[in-house]
Design a protein around this nucleic acid. Structure first.
Lengths: 225, 225
DNA sequence: GTCATTTCTTACACCTTGTAAAGATTACGG
DNA sequence: CCGTAATCTTTACAAGGTGTAAGAAATGAC
């Protein structure tokens, strides 16, 4: 994806490119309609310099998106997927993904409005979806997850439940902890999760060290109107 | 929301307004960056006429969104919510919603990028979310759904699983029927559904049931690579 | 120190949004 | 019918954004 086609890209140019991408990610995240001019000045360069690196505004956006995608994938790779119960690995994966790419909600929504052909779109999402898929398939093979549902569908379910959780947090209807616990519960249910070996699954596996019978999900429990 | 403040809006004006909104919905759905000029000509009027009805492009967009929201709400109200098992009512509701508002995916995504304050955003989504919530609460009261999870969270879960299903269909990875069945299964699991009276719900009930059960959904079953 | 790369400056053409005022039409009420 | 007011159209303008272009200045590489 980064061929040595260019014989010699000056260090100067790399610095500019990085600065532009940094500024783009930062500004576009808070205000998706930021002009190229604003991005350029924030990066300390001129608008023409931006156009020297990215042929169009749209290409700049996709480059910014690719950058945060890489970031998220790197974070996901940090969590080892093949250790322990698949359910735990899956939650680790979601957590890692949310900690990085989840910090750019506006940017991530902008992606779906870019006129990308389905192929390109799939290419972009593939790395993150593939990692989810691997864990889900492992869980299915060990019998931890329901094996009758297609992994692709379960990947979509996982991603969208993650969106639901972060959406509720953004809307201020849930705290991060409440959302995490609700996501935990609902995701494992949707996957048809059962305890892998001998692990007790009271309440789908309570989070460790969440003592205090009090405050065990204020919003999680139904206030019954 | 539509006060008679205007003493006399001529039939002429109403026709123009409707034509503009029609054109806006249609064009923006296929190409969200359509110019006001294009919308105007498609509606058979001039750009200034559009500005006579909508003070800005953004207001035009929100008006178009309100229009399809009304459409969806009307369709949802057509399905009676208080009859039969809550699970069935919920699926009817989702079906109705997907048949109408689900036809404008681009437009519905654009909504989330509009710089609306949380209050306005909530106002807009409230009608559809409220109807979901009512059915979910009814299911919780009858014991059909898990009463420990907050209705708000389950509403978010329902909406986002609906997105997952339509997303998989749009991506060409599932047929409408496959997606409907997968959504059915996963949604009821996530809600902690149990049979209301005597209806057999083999999943969630007992056995791993990995056995016989021949073809019940091509993509639904795991091809196991 | 030379040379190629990169950046800056300046300039242009085009499109889109939003505003404005005048005149031409059209619908509505009497 | 006919006048009046509402509505639409025409024409015009200002501002801001995107994309392109060319020459001069700088900066890094060797």
């Amino acid at each position: 994806m980064t061929p040595r086609q260019a014989p010699h890209r000056r260090a100067d140019a790399q610095r500019s490119r990085a600065a532009i991408l940094d500024a783009a990610v930062q500004l576009l995240n808070t205000h998706p309609d930021t002009s190229v001019e604003a991005i350029a000045t924030a990066a300390g360069v001129t608008r023409q310099t931006v156009y020297a690196h990215f042929p169009s505004r749209e290409q700049l956006l996709t480059a910014a998106l690719d950058r945060i995608t890489e970031e998220a994938v790197a974070a996901m790779d940090a969590a080892d997927l093949d250790t322990g119960p698949a359910a735990d690995a899956l939650l680790r994966l979601l957590d890692a993904s949310n900690r990085t790419a989840g910090q750019y909600p506006v940017l991530l929504q902008k992606i779906s409005l870019l006129p990308v052909d389905p192929h390109t779109d799939h290419e972009r999402h593939a790395p993150v979806a593939d990692r989810l898929k691997r864990v889900i398939q492992r869980g299915q093979e060990t019998g931890e997850f329901d094996g009758r549902l297609s992994p692709d569908w379960l990947v979509a379910v996982t991603i969208n439940l993650g969106h639901a959780a972060s959406g509720e947090v953004d809307a201020g209807r849930m705290s991060s902890e409440e959302a995490a616990e609700a996501l935990h519960t609902s995701l494992l249910r949707a996957l048809g999760a059962v305890a892998p070996t001998g692990t007790p699954t009271r309440e789908e596996g309570a989070p460790p060290a969440r003592s205090g019978a009090k405050a065990r999900g204020a919003k999680l429990r139904n206030p019954r109107k």
